[in-house]
Amino acid sequence: MDLSWMAWTTPVAIFFVVLVCLITAMGIWEYFQPGGGPRVGWLRFETTRGDRLFLSILSAGFINLGWIRWTDQSLWWALALSIIWAVFIYRKC
């Protein structure tokens, strides 16, 4: 199957592989601890661990965009900030 029209590059492929790994890990987590671990936290509405993953990934996108707009620093810092933010979301939201 010719997928050259999709113009694949290694960094984008790595991004999607990481995304698939995260979703798979969530599936395994759900298998061993069913129910999604719902709780009401800092956001004042109920979130499951799936919600928290979604919010972490979406926030990471916005953090990176903000980083590009307001700083000239490397995007690795934005990634580090995104991971810290994701940890915060998982612990507090």
Partner: peptide, 15 residues
């Protein structure tokens, strides 16, 4: 996925 790939590349046509 294709859109994500395009977002990091430039093209002048001809794939």
């Amino acid at each position: 996925m294709t859109v994500v790939n395009y977002a990091f590349q430039d093209t002048f046509g001809n794939n």
